[in-house]
Structure formats: C-alpha cells, structure tokens
Design a protein around this nucleic acid. Sequence first.
DNA 1: CCCCGGCCATGACAACTGTCATGGCGCAGT
DNA 2: ACTGCGCCATGACAGTTGTCATGGCCGGGG
Lengths: 201, 201
Amino acid sequence: MIRLLLADDQALVRGALSALLGLEPDLEVVAEVGSGDEVVAAVLAHHPDVALLDVEMPGLDGIAAAAALRQAAPDTRVLIVTTFGRPGYLRRALQAGASGFVVKDTPAAQLADAVRRVHAGLRVVDPALATDSLVAGDSPLTARETEVLQAARDGSPVAAIAARLFLSEGTVRNHLSAAIGKTGATNRAEAVITAEGNGWL
Amino acid sequence: MIRLLLADDQALVRGALSALLGLEPDLEVVAEVGSGDEVVAAVLAHHPDVALLDVEMPGLDGIAAAAALRQAAPDTRVLIVTTFGRPGYLRRALQAGASGFVVKDTPAAQLADAVRRVHAGLRVVDPALATDSLVAGDSPLTARETEVLQAARDGSPVAAIAARLFLSEGTVRNHLSAAIGKTGATNRAEAVITAEGNGWL
DNA sequence: CCCCGGCCATGACAACTGTCATGGCGCAGT
DNA sequence: ACTGCGCCATGACAGTTGTCATGGCCGGGG
C-alpha cells in the first residue's frame, strides 16, 4: 500500500485526483491539503510515502514545499503535478529534491504509474518537457533583475517599483533594461510574459 | 442514471473528474473531450443529460460551446466548471444558456449535487460569485475598446496594435485611454489585468 | 429632425520608458 | 593585487505613452 498526500489549492481538483488514485488497489490517499504551508505538518502527521504537490498554491508554492520536505521528511518522495510545463519549474523542482514532474495534461491513466515509479525510487519526467528545459536553459536574470521584473508584473510604473524596493528610479530602469535585453523582449510587458512562460519568476 | 459529458483540456483533470463522478451510483460519464470544438459532435453522438464544460479550452471556449449546444442540443443542460470565478464569465455563461456555474475550488463533495440539481432543471450558481458579478457589473468597454485591449495583452506597442487592427496610432491611443479610464487603471498593463480579472476580455 | 454616442482621425503636450555612458562599492576567483 | 561581475546611482537623450481638444462620419431614439 502506497500512502499519498495531495496538495492542490483547488478543492475540486484535489478531490477528483483523490478519487482517481483511490481507484487503484495499491494506492491510498492519507491526507489532503489546500496550501503549501500545510504540507510539512501534514506529512509529519500522516507519514505518506509520496507527496503530490501542485506548483501554483497560496502560501508556499509546491517547489518551496518540496524543498521544505527534503529537510523535514527526507523519506517522503515528491511528485510535482502542475498545470504549466514551464522549463524553469522543472529545473527548480528537481533542484528542490522532487523525484517526479507531471503536467496536468498527461493522460489520467499515467498518473498512478508515475506515483508507483516515484515510490520505487525512480525519476519521472516528461521527456518533451525535459528537452524544453534544456533548450530554454537556466534563468539568465540576476536576483535583482528577477525581483524588479516581479514587481513590474502588475503594471506598476517605475516610480512605484522603486518605492516598493527602496531603489532609485534610475536603478530600476537599469535592471528592467537588462531584463528586457536578456529575455529578448523589446518591452517591459513582453519581458514579464516571456520570463513567466519560462518559469523564471 | 444521469448521463454526463466532460470537456476539459487538461487530461489529468478530466480523468480525475470522471473518476470522482463515476463513484456516484446515479451518474455515468458517457463522453470526454479535450477541446471546445469537439463538444457539439460528442453531445450529438452520446446524448448526455448534462455537459460539464471548462471555460479555458483551446478552440471554442466553454461559454461559446454552451451557446453552440443551445442551438444543436437544447435538451442537454450545461454546467460550467471553471478555474476562475470571474464575474464576466458567469454573466456570459448564463446568457449563453448555461444552467450552472461552479468554480474549481468548491469542495469535491458538492459537484455531484450540482450536477443533480442542474439535471433537475435548477440553476446552480455560487452565491458569492453571483454578488461579485452584480457589483462588478457588465463590461463598460465598447467593442473596439475590448478589441484594442486584447491586442495589447502581449505588450505590443501602439504601432503594432494599429497595424494589426488597421487603425491609426492615434485612434488606438484614444481607445486605450478610454479603456484605462473605464477600468480605473492608470496604465495599459493595469487595464489589461483588471479587465481580464473581471472576465471582460 | 436633432442630439447623443460610438467610431475614426489629427495634432500637441506632458509624462513615462528604454538606452547608454559613467562611476562607485563590494565580493569572488585567479 | 587585479579582474570581473553584480549592484546602486546619476544624468541625458530619444522614443513611446496617456491625455486632451477638436472634428468628421454614421446610426438610433426622442
């Protein structure tokens, strides 16, 4: 019997995945949580063999939760299940100690298998996504550039970003300019979009 | 036996929902499709009683598919199941003839009930979302303004938008300015974000 | 009929944005 | 010690954006 924990902020999806996996005779969902913050506590309480974590969650995201689990419960293996197959997500997930990475448009029949493989100590990675991750490469953005781009996501003008980050407006413009150049964009908005698409934010 | 059709582009979610609903003794999933374009054909082929449609799908979105179903198979009731509880989505879904509207963070246990209610001819609408929809009101944007804002989503400069829409740059700026004013934004990017959040695009 | 509102356009102005050159500070690697 | 690089800052310039006034064209409602 493989014991599972599910973490996904969408209750309906969480419940549905639970139903799906519950159909398998050798799988058993022992805990469900709706935010990344609850993951560690739930794992310590229920000792699942495998934790299925969504990336997009309130509080700690799935990748951060995976990293926290590596510390708190190294025996629990992590399978990331996410909507977006962004190259940067995969890379960061693996660095955080995840054993598998599955996108939500893989066929439902394959999920149970992925869980079993992860439980058996194997790595599970969508091959198409892995190659994407290779070609896209690691984020070229420095820490500050990333931070400034994040602050620019909501369309704030330079002045607001500068105030929020306690920087001068000129510095913000420089970082943005660098980010625009590195992302191949011509534009702040474009830079945000491509950085997000690559999982760099 | 209530016969169901599921439409969701994420195969894993689709399969999981199928498993969840399949647990109910009085429900039966008779068809699953992964895009809005396939909905009408699948409904005509399998005659489900209720169609569960996701809004975000390639091809026809769930709302457009609901409208198409009203024409092609008026006996099949539509329950929209979506990630985003955007006021405009709800309004447009109801106008398109949907009988119910459920957000993906409602508890899994309630979905089957929602299906039964819809099948019984009742309307199912999240009350919190309904009030949101009332306060947010209908889109204040004119057709052109909407179109221009859509074209601005990817961060294109005015010149590119003008070229794509065969308008003069000045006109595009005027429409954008109007949209910015109506959305309460100070900014093109902000205007895009709030318009999207309200389901106006 | 006349007026209002949506739509298109032009032109002008102020504000914001993106780029570049330049310089200082600190930290790592050679 | 020197070099390279990230980070912060300033100032200047050209290009883009947002606003406003103005005007023409059309269709619907009073």
